[in-house]
Design a binder for these strands. Sequence first.
DNA 1: CATCCTTGCTTACGTCGTAAGCTTACGCTG
DNA 2: CAGCGTAAGCTTACGACGTAAGCAAGGATG
Lengths: 218, 218
Amino acid sequence: MPKSREPLSTRRVLQAALALADSGGADSLSMRHLGRELGVEAMSLYRHVANKEAVLDGIVDLVVDEIDLPGDDGDWKAAMRRRGEAAHRVLTRHPWAPALLMSRTNTGPAMLRYIDFTLGVLRGAGFSWRLADYAWNTMDSYVYGFTLRRLNFPIAAADYADTAAAYEYLLAGGRYPHMAELTRQVAEGNHPGDPDITFGLDLILDGLEHLRDREAGS
Amino acid sequence: MPKSREPLSTRRVLQAALALADSGGADSLSMRHLGRELGVEAMSLYRHVANKEAVLDGIVDLVVDEIDLPGDDGDWKAAMRRRGEAAHRVLTRHPWAPALLMSRTNTGPAMLRYIDFTLGVLRGAGFSWRLADYAWNTMDSYVYGFTLRRLNFPIAAADYADTAAAYEYLLAGGRYPHMAELTRQVAEGNHPGDPDITFGLDLILDGLEHLRDREAGS
DNA sequence: CATCCTTGCTTACGTCGTAAGCTTACGCTG
DNA sequence: CAGCGTAAGCTTACGACGTAAGCAAGGATG
């Protein structure tokens, strides 16, 4: 047994915090728990981290840093779609992250790099500054919003059809006729029900392309 | 002073909780604080409400119930746009609400009514069940996502241009060239910067119309 | 009048973030 | 090598939090 353990550092604290959130969700990330995980008292963490807010900011930026930025090979739409899918994938790996990402102002280096890359792709594709700004805002609102909703969807994707049938009691009263019918369509297998992020992604990208071309033409 | 105050009720508890969240944000909504506001001990609330989760579910549904459903006058796009704008407006009035709305499964009556209405509009406009389902999911992911991000935007809309200039130190190092240039454009007044929900709303609605027509044609 | 049920109160437990001050041990200077 | 400053971690403590368990009072019902 090592009598003097490896010393703490901001980096080590944040990595442990990330692991803790991944394994037990955001609720299990307390300063006391985090200290225990590092073999240290809670108050010792404050030597390396201003407060819990700083820990949350830090691990969000660690997550954003995991998002791969595709190379810009000239096809801006493909690059943007891959970027959105990568973000969705990473955020799904860290289910506690989207809520934090959206409800705080994040100006960590990974986030800035990520936004800068996106603006670069759009500008390279001929978007005006105004349109590029609106474009990435729309994209990200959708991607984060979709991911957060998706993670809290009550039903695991696998047995969606089964569960939809079980929910039918809610809809039996005839008060929500369209929802009832939609549920029936899903239960009967006529429609997968489980939404996929690429639907909205392509929809938005096609729309953006159209706006860019119209702006250029006028 | 009335010796016997008006008795509590689930309704009264939820309304007080809503008022409390509106006035002090989600953090100020604790069972103890809520009891104090009603002239009652915290534990007394549990006669009328299962636990705090139920309170949160309840006030979210109260907020959703404030969203006006436009009459469906045959113009589905206008109805959907008004619906999105109304949701955005209501959620902006209750800034604590979007995070709760997105990160929990809400099956309150107001929410169900709201979704049912939306499905009705889309079905009435000739969307297939599959496309209608994807459509409202995309719309809502964007509307809630946009609203939540917008609420946490660091800069009040009014003085965006001024503040953008102040942020420039962050971008001076040349590490984020596109962000720096975008900030400059905003600071110089060439582009408002402040995003507006209708941009993405119209973008999505136009895309949906296109998909519907293509599906009908094939 | 006796009973029960509803409503609200009291007390208590284990958790949380963190302020304030203390101890320990390492590295530098003289 | 002695002395000391400083950094790292520890201890204690405070005022929140959600809520389990049981109690008290008062009105309704037999």
